[in-house]
Simulated assay, not measured.
Amino acid sequence: MFTMKGEWANDAPPQLMILSGAGLSAESGIRTFRDAGGLWEGHDIDTVCNFDNWRDNLELVHGFYQARREAAAKADPNPAHDAVARWQTRWPTHILTQNVDDLLERAGCTDVCHLHGRLQDMRCYDCDYEWEHGLGPWTVDQDACPDCGSTRGVKPGVVFFGEMAPEYRTLQRAMDSLRPRDVLLVVGTSGQVLPVARMGLEAPGPTILNNLEPSDVIPDRCFDHTLYRPAGEAVAEVEALLARYLD
């Protein structure tokens, strides 16, 4: 569980805050969220990821996320995941991700805050029980909530459209805690869900953006450094920038 401990005290050494999105895991074969040819192509978002009607499409919802779990189970951390784990051991680092896979943890990262939930979790909305199911299969009308026995009240532990995202409070606290000597690194996110451009402008210290390509949603002027290439290819340059500010 991600925690905000005393590392953000005014007299603490420089900190690194990392916010990652789907682009971080793309090189591991996890298809991205909003890109052309990405995850949602061929699927109606309102059918498989809508909090208001997920019970009406229960078989399709669970089938869709079962396919996501299978893909995650087959994937391996890529050099960018490994780099984040290495940076966390080198500098005081706070990791927040929009990704629902566990590749950061498998690379060795700890205390990762999953802003949009995790594929391996389940939640029963008939009794409000949450548990870690893992990446194995879930069969509607056969598998059941371990607390109340419900078979049709169980939803994947991923934040759907229209659903509250409790960890957004953690993200806001982290942003509010940044000091002029702390570094904000944003990797692989479109900026269409979170206000990444505003985050870059409001961060009081150095800011780095590493995305695959430029976007009108995140103008270059919002970040001190912009690197447009796959996350794995940008590792060396990002690490050099981090060392400049944090060592």
Results as ranks from 00 to 15, higher is better:
M1I: 00
M1W: 09
G6H: 11
E7P: 12
W8K: 04
N10L: 12
L16M: 05
I18Q: 01
S20T: 02
G23A: 00
L24C: 02
A26T: 06
S28A: 12
R31K: 15
D35E: 15
N50V: 08
W54K: 02
V61W: 15
E70L: 14
D76P: 00
N78E: 00
H81T: 06
V84F: 01
A85G: 03
R86P: 03
R90P: 04
L103R: 04
R106Y: 12
A107K: 10
G108N: 03
V112E: 12
C113D: 13
R118M: 13
L119K: 02
Y125S: 03
C127T: 08
C127F: 08
E132Q: 13
T139K: 12
V140E: 09
Q142F: 11
C145H: 07
P146K: 10
G149Q: 10
S150L: 06
T151K: 09
K155A: 07
V158S: 07
F161W: 14
A165F: 07
E167G: 03
Q172Y: 13
Q172F: 15
Q172I: 02
D176C: 13
D176S: 14
S177N: 13
S177T: 00
L185I: 03
G188W: 11
T189E: 07
G191M: 13
G191A: 10
A203W: 11
P206C: 12
P206F: 10
L209H: 02
N211P: 11
E213V: 00
P214C: 15
C222Y: 06
D224M: 15
T226H: 05
L227G: 02
Y228I: 04
R229C: 12
P230H: 01
G232S: 05
E233M: 10
E233S: 00
A236G: 06
V238E: 09
E239K: 06
A240V: 01
R244H: 08
L246A: 13
L246T: 01
